[in-house]
Simulated scan of single mutants.
Amino acid sequence: MKQALIALAILAVSGAAQAQTYEVVSDKAGVVNLVNLGPTTVGGFHGPIGAPGIAAAGTSDYISLQSIESFTHVSALDQTLAGTSTNWVFTYHQLAPGFIHTEPEHEGEEPLAVGLDGIKIPGLAKSVYFGIASADSATPGLVDHQAWYVGDKKDRVLPSSSTDYVGVALVATPSTAVNAPSVLPGQLTVSSGATSISGQFTAGSGTGKKTLEIAATGGAVFSGTAKYYVGTTAPGATNGTSQGQFFGDAGASASALAGVASGTYLGTGYVASFGARQK
């Protein structure tokens, strides 16, 4: 198989056609595109056609994320909504550079050049994933990162009243190694109809504490600001932007969201992806 297929072996997603995609690219050195998200174009093992898929940048060969889940599972992130017994397990998937799709290697096949990290939002009929793609930068000692999310928007659900969502964010800067994004658990509060979304993801303590704050408006598709910082003192102003949308399972009245954020903190670029599930 070609590199276009090799560079895609990560995550798993299920659902019908009409994949709704969004992606953001950000790093210290400038704009870089590592992967693309869109409807699957490769059938067979890497199908089904039309399901949410991923492709190496510069190619049109998208494989479904559901076709490679068993190869990439890393761990389970057990998240409990603050003040309640509500608990969701987000599955974390990862694939490191150097992966060869087949062994022995076929002629024309190249090792995976991009590191891929992704998380699945649990409990939905239409699966949704978010993550970060990474590769060594042309600038020695730095790494390029791209935040992304992908999912099937069919049957998405907006909250009918103010609702808390529990979730996870992945954050990376140019000094973050490939396959080593910060993993921040957190919680968002969403108003009725999703007219406003706000909250934060955080991990660590003291001077090493990392926080990503999100504040957005817009309904089914939202946009707004982001604030990323390290330590216990937050910057006085926002230092980034955020965008995303809602997904879900209408049959179970289950709502979820996913998004991306990027900005600059203390002169250094950052990029983040995040996802959350209603209690």
Rank of each mutant, 00 (worst) to 15 (best):
A9M: 11
I10P: 09
A12F: 08
V13C: 13
S14I: 12
S14W: 02
Q18S: 13
Q18G: 00
Q20M: 12
Q20V: 12
T21L: 06
E23D: 00
K28T: 13
A29Q: 10
V31R: 13
L34S: 06
L34N: 05
V35L: 14
L37I: 13
L37R: 11
G38L: 02
H46G: 06
H46C: 11
A51H: 04
A51C: 03
P52T: 00
I54F: 04
A56L: 15
A57D: 01
D61C: 09
S64Y: 00
E69H: 12
F71G: 01
T72N: 12
V74L: 15
S75W: 06
Q79P: 02
L81A: 13
G83I: 00
F90N: 09
H93T: 05
Q94A: 14
P97C: 01
G98V: 02
F99L: 14
I100R: 10
T102L: 14
E103G: 08
E103T: 14
P104N: 02
E105C: 09
H106S: 11
G108T: 10
E109P: 04
V114W: 02
V114D: 00
K120Q: 12
K120P: 02
G123K: 02
K126V: 06
I132V: 07
A133G: 03
A135V: 06
A135R: 15
D136M: 13
S137C: 09
S137L: 04
A138L: 15
T139G: 03
P140Q: 02
G141L: 02
H145I: 04
H145G: 07
G151S: 09
D155T: 15
V157T: 08
S161T: 03
Y165S: 07
G167Y: 01
V171M: 07
V171T: 08
S175P: 00
T176E: 10
A177W: 06
P181S: 05
S182W: 12
V183P: 01
L184M: 03
P185N: 02
Q187Y: 01
S192G: 10
S192A: 15
G193F: 04
A194M: 04
T195P: 00
I197N: 03
S198P: 03
S198W: 10
Q200T: 08
A203W: 03
A203K: 15
G206R: 08
T207V: 13
G208C: 06
K209T: 01
K210F: 05
K210Y: 03
E213K: 15
A215T: 05
G219M: 03
F222G: 09
F222A: 06
G224Y: 07
T225K: 15
V230M: 12
V230W: 02
G231Y: 04
G231R: 09
T232M: 11
G240I: 05
G240Y: 00
G240N: 07
T241H: 04
F246S: 11
G248Q: 03
A252R: 13
A252T: 08
S255K: 04
S255D: 00
S255T: 03
G259K: 04
V260A: 13
A261S: 15
S262Y: 01
T264D: 06
Y265Q: 09
T268N: 11
G269D: 12
Y270K: 12
A272V: 05
